[in-house]
Design a protein around this nucleic acid. Structure first.
Length: 293
DNA sequence: CGCCAGGTTAGAG
DNA sequence: CTCTAACATGGC
């Protein structure tokens, strides 16, 4: 059994990240038991079935099914760092946020909470599209059906692990496959469109990673179904840009409305005005506003 | 029952 | 560039 220890920065709260991972009982891409996270992670051809825990300021990763010959340790380590966003130095953000009326109380209360991301770009885009314009609970229902129907299933230690469906599989799907899962025609079309962008047009995380922020956003938005909100969601959760900002996000709007005790939701211009103070840290400002809900 | 949900698109002004 | 209707269905 293969093990890996990854030290974390001072500004990191494992418990806050676990809270996030526990947010829906319908989550199928990981499970949490006794503070340990179980997740299948694709490393090229090898699927690592992992158990993630935390002690002595280190994230401990145990690969339950490892044949060390096949395990790509640096790739796994990089995945975990990206997943928990360990590379971002939060000190400048906290210094700014503490002085802010809206964020101040939030960063104190949830200190160390980081953006738990989605290192897989395809998953990130599809999940964002699934979540478009529906409530989160229903979004999880759709994701569960989608993953259980088209994703790969693995077993280890009596636990079931699911892998997110691959672009190759999804590119072959049609309305006949997705409408019965209660995807709208629009969602069905968008999801297949995204898969085709990977399979046919050669879209990849690596190719986007080489671009600038603006170029990356433009490239993502050239896919039908990926608008400003979805592109920024991926830039935040997959590419780790601290300045990614899903301006149209209903959650952000409601958080501002609640914290400022407004009677109605702010206009986009009012949201822009609030976020002007958070320049460079929009993604983390968004995270903490979400957390306030 | 009505309103809203972690939006996007196409079309009009 | 901004505004709007249409999309479509569950959650509360």
């Amino acid at each position: 059994m293969y093990q890996l220890n990854i030290p974390v920065p001072l500004e990191f709260s494992y418990d806050r990240c676990i809270e996030f991972l526990l947010r829906s009982p319908k989550e199928v891409l990981h499970s949490v038991q006794n503070g340990k996270v179980y997740k299948a992670i694709a490393l090229g051809d090898f699927v690592a079935l992992t158990e993630v825990s935390f002690s002595n300021r280190q994230i401990q990763v145990t690969v339950l099914n490892a044949d060390p010959v096949f395990l790509k340790q640096p790739v796994l380590e990089e995945y975990i760092r990206q997943w928990f966003d360990l590379k971002t130095n939060l000190r400048p953000f906290y210094a700014m946020a503490r002085k802010d009326k809206l964020l101040g109380p939030l960063v104190d209360q949830f200190y160390g909470y980081r953006i738990v991301g989605q290192p897989d770009l395809f998953e990130s885009l599809v999940w964002a599209v699934i979540g478009q314009q529906i409530n989160l609970s229903f979004a999880y229902t759709l994701k569960q059906r989608f993953v259980e129907t088209f994703g790969r299933r693995e077993m280890a230690q009596d636990k079931t692990f699911f892998l997110f469906p691959s672009p190759e599989v999804v590119a072959q799907l049609s309305d006949a496959d997705l409408l019965p899962l209660q995807f709208s025609k629009q969602k069905s079309k968008y999801v297949v469109e995204i898969a085709k962008a990977f399979v046919i047009n050669g879209l990849s995380k690596d190719s986007i990673e080489k671009l600038s922020f603006d170029q990356a956003k433009e490239k993502l938005m050239s896919i039908k179904g990926v608008g400003n909100w979805t592109a920024n969601y991926a830039l935040m959760k997959t590419f780790r840009y601290p300045n990614a900002f899903p301006l149209e996000d209903a959650g952000v709007h409601n958080a501002i409305k609640n914290l400022k005790k407004m009677k109605v939701k702010p206009t986009l211009d009012q949201v822009r005005r609030v976020f002007k103070k958070y320049k460079g840290w929009e993604a983390y400002a968004t995270l903490y506003l979400w957390k306030s809900l």
